[in-house]
Computed example of a mutant assay.
Amino acid sequence: PVQAGIINDEITRLKGLHDKKVYAVVEETCASAAYYIAAAADNIYVDKASLVGSIGVLMDGFGFTGLMEKLGIERRLMTAGDNKGLLDPFSPQDESQRQFMQNLLAEIHTQFIDVVKRGRGDRLKETPETFSGLVWNGQQAVALGLADGLGNLDYVAREIVKAEELVDYTRRENVGLRLAKRFGASVGEGMFLAARAAGVQLR
């Protein structure tokens, strides 16, 4: 949520600073943090089969206390601070700590919801499931007001932005660097095999 929030804030700031419209175009998936970011756009376009939504927050982990007991393993945890061992997977779950984390996640969820409501405004057709973490296909997302219409990148550029040409700003690795890496890996592998054949150990 932190990185998504930073990007959302920056898109919002730059839109205001330069008085520019921003369009988000979804291909495969725009869920969770991706939707958090897209909510800053003026309009969101999706494919009918795109997956959109997942407006929720999760924190997962494991608990090994039962397994440790079966194996006869004793956990020795020393902390300075009553809650420093918060969510330690090798200690029994403390109910007060669990509730603390649940409240923390609920607050972050509320932040996410506020961002979506601010971004979508009156277009959002809120239901009890809107902010439950579910995802919808593109057609459903448009009907729910999570997106504005169906369209791919070329369609939005041509019909909405009226762009004469597309500029792809995707960062790509330099061809020379890519070849050097590949060549370097081949040389390294060849040296390793030759050394192994000669009985030399590489350390």
Rank of each mutant, 00 (worst) to 15 (best):
V161P: 00
G176R: 11
T79L: 09
D88I: 02
A80Y: 14
G190V: 04
G85P: 02
L153E: 04
R75Y: 03
F192H: 11
G145I: 06
I113H: 06
Q102V: 06
G85E: 06
V26I: 14
A195M: 11
V116E: 02
F100T: 07
V175W: 02
G16H: 07
C30K: 07
R182M: 07
A33C: 12
T130A: 08
K70F: 08
H18I: 00
A41Q: 06
Q140C: 04
L104P: 00
E189Y: 13
I55F: 05
D19T: 05
G56P: 01
F192C: 01
R182F: 03
V175N: 01
V187M: 12
G138W: 09
L144M: 14
A24K: 02
F112Q: 04
A31K: 10
L77C: 12
S186W: 05
V135S: 13
E74F: 01
A49N: 13
D9I: 03
L134A: 14
A163K: 01
M191A: 13
P1A: 15
E28R: 10
N8A: 14
R120Y: 04
K48V: 11
A143N: 15
L144S: 10
P1H: 15
V135N: 10
L193F: 11
G5Q: 13
L51R: 12
A163T: 01
D122F: 00
S96Q: 10
R172F: 04
D88R: 01
T110R: 15
T65P: 00
Q102P: 00
L51W: 05
L193Y: 11
G81N: 13
Y155K: 08
L144C: 03
A143I: 06
N8R: 14
G119S: 05
L51S: 11
G63I: 02
G184V: 06
G56K: 04
A157E: 03
G199R: 09
R120T: 05
S186Q: 05
L104K: 12
I108F: 14
Q201M: 12
L58C: 11
P1K: 13
L87S: 09
G63Q: 06
A31L: 10
L105R: 11
Q111H: 11
A185F: 06
R158C: 00
I160P: 00
I44N: 03
A163Y: 01
R98I: 09
Q93D: 02
G63A: 02
R196P: 01
A147L: 07
E28F: 04
P1Q: 15
L104S: 12
A39T: 08
E107V: 13
V52R: 02
I108C: 09
E165T: 10
G133P: 08
L177A: 12
Y45S: 07
I160M: 08
Y35E: 06
R178Y: 07
E165M: 05
H18L: 13
E95S: 08
A80E: 15
F131I: 08
